[in-house]
């Protein structure tokens, strides 16, 4: 085994150079042409920058709420709740979320609340929610902001992202983009 150690060390050294220096530098070079030069896609709004792909916490009644998060949307880290489906404590949390939602949205019937608004995402940073999750909040926002419900529904339609190429995967809405558009609605 001893006579194999030295060649192994040398081979390791040259492969480190190739796979962890040259390869990533080549990718980095090409990524300079990607959105925001590979530093994460952003949108500017009122002088603040926001990462499109990183969800934000929306809990105020005048915004569309985002999904619950196990890490409160702090993207310094990431994480899910990791609660098992039969965990009683977890099921009590879900029930509490239903009750809170109904208190803030008294016109809504329980059967209209979509499950994504009651469950935490895997990353805790989910930037999206479902179309139903937006629609179920329209009455509340219309009342608080004094905007016509029809207008809000149009806004939701505009912000709905169709499945990939129209045929693959789910429909979704980027909550940040929707709320920015909501702020800009006059």
């Amino acid at each position: 085994m001893k006579k194999h150690i030295l060649p192994a060390i040398k081979l390791t050294a040259v492969m480190i150079l190739f796979f962890t220096v040259i390869y990533p530098l080549a990718v980095w070079g090409i990524a300079q042409f990607a959105p925001n030069a590979g530093k994460g896609e952003i949108i500017e709004h009122n002088g603040n920058k926001h990462y499109v792909n990183i969800g934000q916490s929306f809990t105020d009644d005048n915004y569309f709420w985002s999904r619950p998060s196990a890490v409160d949307y702090n993207a310094a880290g990431s994480g899910g709740s990791n609660k098992g489906p039969s965990n009683e404590e977890y099921l009590a949390d879900v029930q509490a979320r239903i009750d809170t939602f109904l208190v803030h949205n008294p016109e809504v019937d329980k059967s209209e609340i979509p499950v994504d608004l009651l469950t935490a995402s895997g990353s805790g940073l989910d930037p999206n929610f479902s179309v139903q999750a937006a629609k179920v909040q329209v009455k509340r926002i219309a009342k608080i902001r004094g905007v016509d419900e029809v207008k809000l529904n149009q806004l939701i339609d505009q912000q709905t992202e169709k499945p990939l190429w129209g045929i693959f995967g789910p429909e979704k809405i980027n909550v940040l983009k929707l709320n920015i558009a909501l702020d800009e609605l006059k």
Partner: peptide
């Protein structure tokens, strides 16, 4: 609990993936 469960088991899952 009587809610709209049509998206499936969304605990720990991302909307863009489903």
């Amino acid at each position: 609990m009587g809610i709209d469960n049509s998206l499936g088991a969304m605990e720990g899952k991302e909307i863009r993936l489903g």
